[in-house]
Amino acid sequence: MLDFHCVRTVCPYCGAGCHLLLEVLDGKLVGTLPCKEDPVSDGKLCAKGWNAWRYVEHPERLRTPLLRRGSVLEPVTWQEALEFLAAKLWGIREEHGPQAIGFFASAKCTNEENYLIQKLARAVMGTNNVDHCARL
């Protein structure tokens, strides 16, 4: 039996955080609608919001971390990717000091995630080099 329902979510594209409804038909995304009860967007969306659902099942969507080995990007596990990243960051910090490292947060993240990245930058790595994609 066919199922059709909506899911309310937050547009991942910018810091405004407009709510939108995802239309789900038998487990597949088929469209989106602006959320009429959302005081932020007032039931309106921009070009990005209207299309935010399209990448979810896009064939070119990255579904696993990729690590460049030589000239080839190879799929790796998150564990492997994070260990590689941590080792690199610590290596740079030891060789050049914490000021050699910068952290760029994103409007697509939640406030809490952005808080965590600045905490990682300041408390763990010891740098105040924190910036944000909205200024790039």
């Binding site: 039996m1 066919l2 909506c6 309310r8 409804l21 609608l33």
Partner: peptide, 19 residues
Amino acid sequence: LPLLSLRQYPWGVGPYLFR
């Protein structure tokens, strides 16, 4: 017959197919 209308979800109102 399934019925298409609007439903009060836990998060607000949106289209829904009632069965």
